[in-house]
Design a protein around this nucleic acid. Sequence first.
DNA 1: TCTGGGGTCCTAGGACCC
DNA 2: TCTGGGGTCCTAGGACCC
Length: 409
Amino acid sequence: MRTIFHVDMDAFFVSVEELFRPELKGKPVVVGGQPDQRGVVSAASYAARKFGVHSAMPLRTAYKLCPQAIFVEGHPERYREYSGRVREVLGRYSPQVEMASIDEAYLDLTGSERLLGPPLKAAHNLHEDIRKATNLNCSIGVATSRLVAKICSDQAKPNGVLWILPGQEARFLAPLEVRKIPGVGKVTEKSLHTYNIRKIGDLAKLERSFLEAKFGKWGLALAGKALGHDAGGWFDRDVSDGDDPKSISHERTYGEDTRDQGLIEATLARLSEMVGSRLREHHLHARTVQLKLRYSDFSTFTRAHTLDEPTQLDIVLIEQSRKLFRDNWTGGPVRLLGVQASNLQKVEGQMSLLEQEKQERWRKALSAVDQIRGKFGAKSVGLASAMRGGFEERVHEAMPQKRDPKPKP
DNA sequence: TCTGGGGTCCTAGGACCC
DNA sequence: TCTGGGGTCCTAGGACCC
Protein backbone atom coordinates (compact mmCIF):
# COMPACT_ATOMS: atom_id res chain seq x y z
CA MET A 1 0.00 0.00 0.00
CA ARG A 2 1.51 3.31 -1.05
CA THR A 3 1.39 6.60 0.84
CA ILE A 4 1.32 9.50 -1.61
CA PHE A 5 1.29 13.20 -0.77
CA HIS A 6 0.11 15.85 -3.20
CA VAL A 7 1.26 19.33 -2.23
CA ASP A 8 -0.40 22.26 -3.98
CA MET A 9 0.47 25.88 -3.26
CA ASP A 10 -2.54 28.14 -2.63
CA ALA A 11 -3.03 30.90 -5.25
CA PHE A 12 0.71 30.63 -5.83
CA PHE A 13 1.48 33.52 -8.19
CA VAL A 14 -0.80 35.91 -6.33
CA SER A 15 0.62 34.90 -2.96
CA VAL A 16 4.20 35.48 -4.13
CA GLU A 17 3.19 38.92 -5.44
CA GLU A 18 1.72 39.69 -2.02
CA LEU A 19 5.01 38.85 -0.31
CA PHE A 20 6.62 41.69 -2.25
CA ARG A 21 3.64 44.05 -2.11
CA PRO A 22 1.83 43.46 1.18
CA GLU A 23 -0.71 46.16 0.29
CA LEU A 24 -2.20 43.69 -2.22
CA LYS A 25 -3.30 41.35 0.55
CA GLY A 26 -7.04 40.71 0.64
CA LYS A 27 -7.62 42.75 -2.53
CA PRO A 28 -8.81 41.43 -5.88
CA VAL A 29 -5.57 40.76 -7.76
CA VAL A 30 -5.18 39.36 -11.27
CA VAL A 31 -1.81 38.07 -12.50
CA GLY A 32 -1.35 37.84 -16.27
CA GLY A 33 -1.07 41.34 -17.70
CA GLN A 34 -2.94 44.55 -18.23
CA PRO A 35 -6.66 44.40 -19.10
CA ASP A 36 -6.14 45.95 -22.54
CA GLN A 37 -3.61 43.27 -23.51
CA ARG A 38 -4.24 40.11 -25.47
CA GLY A 39 -3.89 37.42 -22.89
CA VAL A 40 -5.52 35.42 -20.17
CA VAL A 41 -5.54 35.29 -16.39
CA SER A 42 -2.67 33.21 -14.98
CA ALA A 43 -3.90 33.47 -11.41
CA ALA A 44 -6.55 35.34 -9.47
CA SER A 45 -6.69 36.10 -5.75
CA TYR A 46 -9.56 34.68 -3.73
CA ALA A 47 -11.05 38.19 -3.54
CA ALA A 48 -11.03 38.40 -7.36
CA ARG A 49 -12.50 34.90 -7.67
CA LYS A 50 -15.57 36.12 -5.79
CA PHE A 51 -16.38 38.22 -8.87
CA GLY A 52 -16.16 35.17 -11.12
CA VAL A 53 -12.60 35.77 -12.27
CA HIS A 54 -10.62 32.57 -12.79
CA SER A 55 -7.47 31.43 -14.53
CA ALA A 56 -7.51 30.98 -18.32
CA MET A 57 -10.13 33.72 -18.63
CA PRO A 58 -9.33 36.50 -21.12
CA LEU A 59 -7.96 39.56 -19.31
CA ARG A 60 -10.58 41.76 -20.97
CA THR A 61 -13.33 39.58 -19.54
CA ALA A 62 -11.75 39.66 -16.08
CA TYR A 63 -11.76 43.44 -16.30
CA LYS A 64 -15.46 43.54 -17.17
CA LEU A 65 -16.28 41.30 -14.21
CA CYS A 66 -14.03 43.13 -11.76
CA PRO A 67 -12.82 46.54 -12.97
CA GLN A 68 -11.45 47.42 -9.53
CA ALA A 69 -9.03 44.48 -9.59
CA ILE A 70 -5.31 45.19 -9.56
CA PHE A 71 -3.76 43.75 -12.73
CA VAL A 72 -0.11 42.74 -12.55
CA GLU A 73 2.26 41.23 -15.12
CA GLY A 74 3.83 38.74 -12.78
CA HIS A 75 7.42 37.78 -12.00
CA PRO A 76 8.32 34.31 -13.33
CA GLU A 77 11.82 34.43 -11.78
CA ARG A 78 10.31 34.95 -8.33
CA TYR A 79 7.89 32.06 -8.86
CA ARG A 80 10.78 29.81 -9.88
CA GLU A 81 12.74 30.84 -6.84
CA TYR A 82 9.90 30.11 -4.42
CA SER A 83 9.16 26.86 -6.22
CA GLY A 84 12.79 25.91 -5.59
CA ARG A 85 12.44 26.68 -1.88
CA VAL A 86 9.39 24.45 -1.67
CA ARG A 87 11.25 21.72 -3.55
CA GLU A 88 14.06 21.94 -1.01
CA VAL A 89 11.67 21.39 1.92
CA LEU A 90 10.00 18.46 0.15
CA GLY A 91 13.39 16.83 -0.31
CA ARG A 92 13.73 16.62 3.47
CA TYR A 93 10.67 14.36 3.60
CA SER A 94 11.33 11.97 0.75
CA PRO A 95 13.93 11.16 -1.87
CA GLN A 96 11.04 10.59 -4.27
CA VAL A 97 9.71 14.02 -5.15
CA GLU A 98 8.17 14.91 -8.47
CA MET A 99 7.38 18.52 -9.27
CA ALA A 100 4.27 18.22 -11.44
CA SER A 101 4.38 21.94 -12.22
CA ILE A 102 5.83 25.08 -10.71
CA ASP A 103 3.39 25.02 -7.79
CA GLU A 104 2.55 21.38 -7.10
CA ALA A 105 4.39 18.18 -6.33
CA TYR A 106 3.93 14.52 -5.54
CA LEU A 107 5.88 12.76 -2.79
CA ASP A 108 6.06 9.06 -2.18
CA LEU A 109 6.23 8.51 1.61
CA THR A 110 5.55 4.79 1.51
CA GLY A 111 7.23 3.08 4.45
CA SER A 112 8.45 6.26 6.10
CA GLU A 113 6.20 6.10 9.18
CA ARG A 114 9.01 5.14 11.53
CA LEU A 115 10.97 8.15 10.38
CA LEU A 116 8.23 10.75 9.98
CA GLY A 117 5.37 9.47 12.11
CA PRO A 118 1.80 8.78 10.97
CA PRO A 119 0.81 10.33 7.59
CA LEU A 120 -1.37 13.06 9.03
CA LYS A 121 1.33 14.11 11.47
CA ALA A 122 3.93 14.16 8.68
CA ALA A 123 1.58 16.21 6.50
CA HIS A 124 1.06 18.83 9.18
CA ASN A 125 4.79 19.06 9.81
CA LEU A 126 5.41 19.46 6.10
CA HIS A 127 2.74 22.12 5.87
CA GLU A 128 4.39 24.03 8.71
CA ASP A 129 7.90 23.66 7.27
CA ILE A 130 6.76 25.04 3.91
CA ARG A 131 5.17 28.00 5.62
CA LYS A 132 8.33 28.68 7.61
CA ALA A 133 10.52 28.49 4.52
CA THR A 134 8.36 30.61 2.22
CA ASN A 135 5.64 32.41 4.18
CA LEU A 136 3.21 30.79 1.76
CA ASN A 137 0.21 28.57 2.32
CA CYS A 138 -0.33 25.25 0.67
CA SER A 139 -2.78 22.39 0.78
CA ILE A 140 -1.83 18.76 1.11
CA GLY A 141 -3.71 15.64 0.08
CA VAL A 142 -2.67 12.24 1.42
CA ALA A 143 -3.90 8.98 -0.08
CA THR A 144 -2.91 5.62 -1.50
CA SER A 145 -2.78 6.86 -5.11
CA ARG A 146 -1.60 9.97 -6.90
CA LEU A 147 -5.07 10.49 -8.28
CA VAL A 148 -6.83 10.53 -4.91
CA ALA A 149 -4.05 12.58 -3.29
CA LYS A 150 -4.48 15.19 -6.02
CA ILE A 151 -8.26 15.39 -5.67
CA CYS A 152 -7.76 15.47 -1.93
CA SER A 153 -5.49 18.51 -1.92
CA ASP A 154 -8.07 20.28 -4.06
CA GLN A 155 -10.81 19.48 -1.56
CA ALA A 156 -8.54 20.65 1.28
CA LYS A 157 -8.08 24.14 -0.19
CA PRO A 158 -7.34 26.69 1.01
CA ASN A 159 -4.58 25.99 3.50
CA GLY A 160 -5.74 22.54 4.59
CA VAL A 161 -4.61 18.96 4.98
CA LEU A 162 -6.79 15.99 4.08
CA TRP A 163 -6.05 12.30 4.47
CA ILE A 164 -8.21 9.60 2.93
CA LEU A 165 -7.87 6.35 4.85
CA PRO A 166 -6.89 3.31 2.81
CA GLY A 167 -10.07 1.60 1.65
CA GLN A 168 -12.20 4.75 1.80
CA GLU A 169 -11.22 6.07 -1.65
CA ALA A 170 -14.38 5.21 -3.56
CA ARG A 171 -16.58 6.51 -0.75
CA PHE A 172 -14.70 9.81 -0.74
CA LEU A 173 -14.93 10.20 -4.51
CA ALA A 174 -18.54 9.11 -5.03
CA PRO A 175 -20.31 12.42 -4.25
CA LEU A 176 -17.89 14.55 -6.33
CA GLU A 177 -18.61 15.82 -9.84
CA VAL A 178 -16.94 13.82 -12.63
CA ARG A 179 -15.17 17.04 -13.60
CA LYS A 180 -13.03 16.68 -10.47
CA ILE A 181 -11.19 13.77 -12.07
CA PRO A 182 -7.97 15.10 -13.58
CA GLY A 183 -8.21 14.50 -17.31
CA VAL A 184 -11.96 15.06 -17.44
CA GLY A 185 -12.36 18.47 -19.00
CA LYS A 186 -15.20 20.28 -20.67
CA VAL A 187 -15.53 17.86 -23.58
CA THR A 188 -15.46 14.60 -21.61
CA GLU A 189 -17.74 16.06 -18.96
CA LYS A 190 -20.30 16.98 -21.58
CA SER A 191 -20.24 13.58 -23.16
CA LEU A 192 -20.54 11.87 -19.75
CA HIS A 193 -23.52 14.09 -18.99
CA THR A 194 -25.31 12.84 -22.11
CA TYR A 195 -25.37 9.41 -20.42
CA ASN A 196 -26.53 11.09 -17.21
CA ILE A 197 -23.22 10.35 -15.52
CA ARG A 198 -22.68 13.35 -13.26
CA LYS A 199 -20.99 12.17 -10.06
CA ILE A 200 -17.93 9.98 -9.75
CA GLY A 201 -20.21 7.52 -7.93
CA ASP A 202 -22.37 7.23 -11.07
CA LEU A 203 -19.23 6.31 -12.98
CA ALA A 204 -18.19 3.72 -10.40
CA LYS A 205 -21.52 1.90 -10.69
CA LEU A 206 -21.24 1.32 -14.46
CA GLU A 207 -19.98 -1.83 -16.16
CA ARG A 208 -16.43 -1.56 -17.43
CA SER A 209 -17.62 -3.02 -20.71
CA PHE A 210 -20.14 -0.19 -21.13
CA LEU A 211 -17.46 2.46 -20.59
CA GLU A 212 -15.07 0.66 -22.91
CA ALA A 213 -17.72 0.48 -25.64
CA LYS A 214 -18.50 4.20 -25.32
CA PHE A 215 -15.04 5.65 -24.66
CA GLY A 216 -12.52 2.98 -25.65
CA LYS A 217 -9.27 2.83 -23.72
CA TRP A 218 -10.09 6.09 -21.97
CA GLY A 219 -13.35 4.52 -20.74
CA LEU A 220 -11.46 1.72 -19.01
CA ALA A 221 -9.12 4.22 -17.41
CA LEU A 222 -12.14 6.20 -16.18
CA ALA A 223 -13.64 3.08 -14.60
CA GLY A 224 -10.44 2.64 -12.60
CA LYS A 225 -10.20 6.29 -11.67
CA ALA A 226 -13.75 6.27 -10.31
CA LEU A 227 -12.46 3.77 -7.72
CA GLY A 228 -9.39 5.86 -6.97
CA HIS A 229 -6.81 3.93 -9.00
CA ASP A 230 -4.02 5.54 -11.01
CA ALA A 231 -5.42 3.74 -14.04
CA GLY A 232 -3.60 4.59 -17.22
CA GLY A 233 -2.02 7.73 -18.62
CA TRP A 234 0.17 10.16 -16.77
CA PHE A 235 -0.92 9.12 -13.26
CA ASP A 236 -0.02 5.50 -13.77
CA ARG A 237 3.67 5.90 -12.97
CA ASP A 238 5.90 5.88 -9.95
CA VAL A 239 6.72 9.16 -8.30
CA SER A 240 10.12 9.97 -9.73
CA ASP A 241 12.48 12.83 -10.21
CA GLY A 242 11.72 14.88 -13.28
CA ASP A 243 12.67 13.04 -16.45
CA ASP A 244 14.05 14.87 -19.44
CA PRO A 245 11.42 16.89 -21.26
CA LYS A 246 9.70 15.28 -24.26
CA SER A 247 9.45 18.56 -26.13
CA ILE A 248 10.66 22.13 -25.86
CA SER A 249 8.73 24.97 -27.42
CA HIS A 250 8.28 28.71 -27.49
CA GLU A 251 5.42 30.65 -28.98
CA ARG A 252 4.36 34.23 -29.28
CA THR A 253 1.07 35.98 -29.89
CA TYR A 254 1.42 39.40 -31.51
CA GLY A 255 -0.23 42.42 -29.94
CA GLU A 256 -1.68 42.97 -33.40
CA ASP A 257 -1.91 40.46 -36.23
CA THR A 258 0.68 40.89 -38.96
CA ARG A 259 1.43 39.89 -42.57
CA ASP A 260 4.90 41.48 -42.47
CA GLN A 261 7.11 38.61 -43.61
CA GLY A 262 10.26 40.30 -42.34
CA LEU A 263 8.77 40.64 -38.88
CA ILE A 264 7.39 37.10 -38.96
CA GLU A 265 10.70 35.55 -39.95
CA ALA A 266 12.52 37.62 -37.34
CA THR A 267 10.11 36.24 -34.75
CA LEU A 268 10.72 32.69 -35.97
CA ALA A 269 14.45 33.25 -35.66
CA ARG A 270 14.08 34.51 -32.12
CA LEU A 271 11.79 31.67 -31.09
CA SER A 272 14.18 29.15 -32.67
CA GLU A 273 17.11 30.62 -30.76
CA MET A 274 15.18 30.37 -27.51
CA VAL A 275 14.39 26.72 -28.26
CA GLY A 276 18.01 26.02 -29.24
CA SER A 277 19.33 27.57 -26.10
CA ARG A 278 17.05 25.44 -23.92
CA LEU A 279 18.07 22.32 -25.86
CA ARG A 280 21.70 23.04 -25.07
CA GLU A 281 20.84 23.77 -21.44
CA HIS A 282 19.29 20.31 -21.17
CA HIS A 283 22.04 18.67 -23.25
CA LEU A 284 19.42 17.47 -25.71
CA HIS A 285 19.31 17.16 -29.48
CA ALA A 286 16.05 17.36 -31.42
CA ARG A 287 15.11 15.44 -34.55
CA THR A 288 11.71 17.02 -35.19
CA VAL A 289 11.03 20.71 -35.69
CA GLN A 290 7.43 21.89 -35.64
CA LEU A 291 5.99 25.22 -36.72
CA LYS A 292 2.74 26.49 -35.24
CA LEU A 293 0.76 29.10 -37.08
CA ARG A 294 -2.43 30.79 -35.92
CA TYR A 295 -4.35 33.22 -38.11
CA SER A 296 -6.59 36.08 -37.04
CA ASP A 297 -9.67 33.85 -37.15
CA PHE A 298 -7.91 31.67 -34.57
CA SER A 299 -7.56 28.77 -36.99
CA THR A 300 -4.37 26.99 -35.99
CA PHE A 301 -2.05 24.75 -37.99
CA THR A 302 1.05 22.77 -37.14
CA ARG A 303 3.58 21.54 -39.69
CA ALA A 304 6.49 19.35 -38.73
CA HIS A 305 9.67 18.07 -40.30
CA THR A 306 11.90 15.30 -39.01
CA LEU A 307 15.60 15.69 -39.68
CA ASP A 308 17.97 12.88 -40.60
CA GLU A 309 20.36 14.04 -37.90
CA PRO A 310 19.34 15.38 -34.49
CA THR A 311 20.42 18.95 -33.85
CA GLN A 312 20.73 21.58 -31.18
CA LEU A 313 21.94 24.30 -33.53
CA ASP A 314 19.97 27.52 -33.78
CA ILE A 315 20.69 27.84 -37.47
CA VAL A 316 19.14 24.47 -38.29
CA LEU A 317 16.05 25.25 -36.23
CA ILE A 318 15.77 28.65 -37.86
CA GLU A 319 16.12 27.29 -41.40
CA GLN A 320 13.63 24.49 -40.79
CA SER A 321 10.98 26.66 -39.14
CA ARG A 322 11.38 29.26 -41.87
CA LYS A 323 11.02 26.65 -44.60
CA LEU A 324 7.92 25.23 -42.94
CA PHE A 325 6.53 28.75 -42.74
CA ARG A 326 7.29 29.65 -46.37
CA ASP A 327 5.85 26.34 -47.60
CA ASN A 328 2.60 26.70 -45.68
CA TRP A 329 1.74 30.35 -45.07
CA THR A 330 -1.46 31.38 -46.84
CA GLY A 331 -0.43 35.03 -46.75
CA GLY A 332 -3.19 35.77 -44.26
CA PRO A 333 -2.66 37.87 -41.13
CA VAL A 334 -0.77 35.93 -38.46
CA ARG A 335 -1.79 36.04 -34.82
CA LEU A 336 0.60 33.52 -33.29
CA LEU A 337 3.84 31.77 -34.18
CA GLY A 338 5.40 28.84 -32.38
CA VAL A 339 8.50 26.69 -32.75
CA GLN A 340 8.69 23.30 -31.09
CA ALA A 341 11.51 20.76 -30.88
CA SER A 342 10.59 17.14 -30.18
CA ASN A 343 11.94 13.64 -30.69
CA LEU A 344 14.61 14.63 -28.19
CA GLN A 345 17.75 12.63 -27.48
CA LYS A 346 20.45 13.00 -24.88
CA VAL A 347 23.71 14.30 -26.30
CA GLU A 348 26.47 11.76 -25.88
CA GLY A 349 29.95 13.16 -25.70
CA GLN A 350 31.31 15.90 -27.87
CA MET A 351 29.78 17.65 -30.81
CA SER A 352 31.09 16.29 -34.11
CA LEU A 353 33.74 18.28 -35.93
CA LEU A 354 31.25 19.17 -38.62
CA GLU A 355 28.85 20.49 -36.02
CA GLN A 356 31.52 22.49 -34.25
CA GLU A 357 32.44 24.06 -37.56
CA LYS A 358 28.83 24.91 -38.32
CA GLN A 359 28.40 26.37 -34.84
CA GLU A 360 31.46 28.55 -35.35
CA ARG A 361 30.28 29.80 -38.75
CA TRP A 362 26.98 30.63 -37.18
CA ARG A 363 28.60 32.50 -34.31
CA LYS A 364 30.49 34.65 -36.79
CA ALA A 365 27.37 35.33 -38.80
CA LEU A 366 25.56 36.38 -35.65
CA SER A 367 28.26 38.77 -34.59
CA ALA A 368 28.08 40.31 -38.09
CA VAL A 369 24.37 40.76 -37.54
CA ASP A 370 25.07 42.39 -34.22
CA GLN A 371 27.43 44.84 -35.92
CA ILE A 372 24.79 45.73 -38.46
CA ARG A 373 22.36 46.21 -35.62
CA GLY A 374 24.82 48.60 -34.06
CA LYS A 375 25.08 50.60 -37.28
CA PHE A 376 21.39 50.81 -38.00
CA GLY A 377 20.40 51.26 -34.35
CA ALA A 378 17.70 49.62 -32.35
CA LYS A 379 15.13 49.88 -35.13
CA SER A 380 17.15 47.50 -37.30
CA VAL A 381 16.64 44.58 -34.93
CA GLY A 382 13.72 43.20 -36.93
CA LEU A 383 15.51 43.81 -40.21
CA ALA A 384 18.72 42.23 -38.97
CA SER A 385 16.96 39.16 -37.67
CA ALA A 386 14.95 38.84 -40.85
CA MET A 387 18.20 38.81 -42.79
CA ARG A 388 19.22 35.66 -41.07
CA GLY A 389 17.10 34.21 -43.84
CA GLY A 390 19.15 34.15 -47.00
CA PHE A 391 21.82 35.61 -44.86
CA GLU A 392 24.73 35.84 -47.18
CA GLU A 393 22.97 37.36 -50.15
CA ARG A 394 21.18 39.95 -48.14
CA VAL A 395 24.13 41.03 -46.06
CA HIS A 396 25.71 42.34 -49.27
CA GLU A 397 22.64 44.36 -50.13
CA ALA A 398 22.42 45.71 -46.64
CA MET A 399 26.01 46.67 -46.12
CA PRO A 400 26.98 49.48 -48.50
CA GLN A 401 28.40 51.28 -45.47
CA LYS A 402 31.17 48.77 -45.39
CA ARG A 403 32.70 50.64 -48.28
CA ASP A 404 32.25 53.90 -46.44
CA PRO A 405 35.76 54.78 -45.25
CA LYS A 406 34.46 57.01 -42.50
CA PRO A 407 32.79 55.37 -39.54
CA LYS A 408 29.56 56.91 -38.41
CA PRO A 409 29.79 59.22 -35.41
C1' DT B 1 -15.61 35.18 -23.37
C1' DC B 2 -12.51 37.45 -28.79
C1' DT B 3 -9.46 33.59 -26.45
C1' DG B 4 -1.26 33.06 -23.27
C1' DG B 5 2.50 29.98 -22.99
C1' DG B 6 4.55 25.79 -21.62
C1' DG B 7 3.82 21.18 -21.50
C1' DT B 8 1.75 15.77 -21.69
C1' DC B 9 -0.77 12.10 -23.70
C1' DC B 10 -3.77 9.98 -27.17
C1' DT B 11 -5.75 8.92 -31.82
C1' DA B 12 -5.81 8.15 -36.59
C1' DG B 13 -4.16 7.77 -41.19
C1' DG B 14 -0.50 7.04 -44.55
C1' DA B 15 4.12 5.38 -45.89
C1' DC B 16 6.99 1.75 -45.81
C1' DC B 17 8.82 -2.82 -44.81
C1' DC B 18 8.58 -7.79 -44.26
C1' DT C 1 -0.83 -6.65 -61.11
C1' DC C 2 -6.27 -6.56 -57.95
C1' DT C 3 -3.58 -8.12 -53.29
C1' DG C 4 -3.25 -9.86 -46.21
C1' DG C 5 -1.61 -8.56 -41.82
C1' DG C 6 1.49 -6.61 -38.51
C1' DG C 7 4.99 -3.38 -36.90
C1' DT C 8 7.12 1.08 -36.92
C1' DC C 9 7.75 5.79 -38.07
C1' DC C 10 5.92 10.19 -39.22
C1' DT C 11 2.46 13.84 -39.25
C1' DA C 12 -1.69 16.55 -37.72
C1' DG C 13 -4.93 17.52 -34.56
C1' DG C 14 -7.22 17.61 -30.15
C1' DA C 15 -8.19 17.20 -25.05
C1' DC C 16 -6.32 18.49 -21.06
C1' DC C 17 -3.32 20.54 -17.16
C1' DC C 18 -1.18 24.55 -14.62
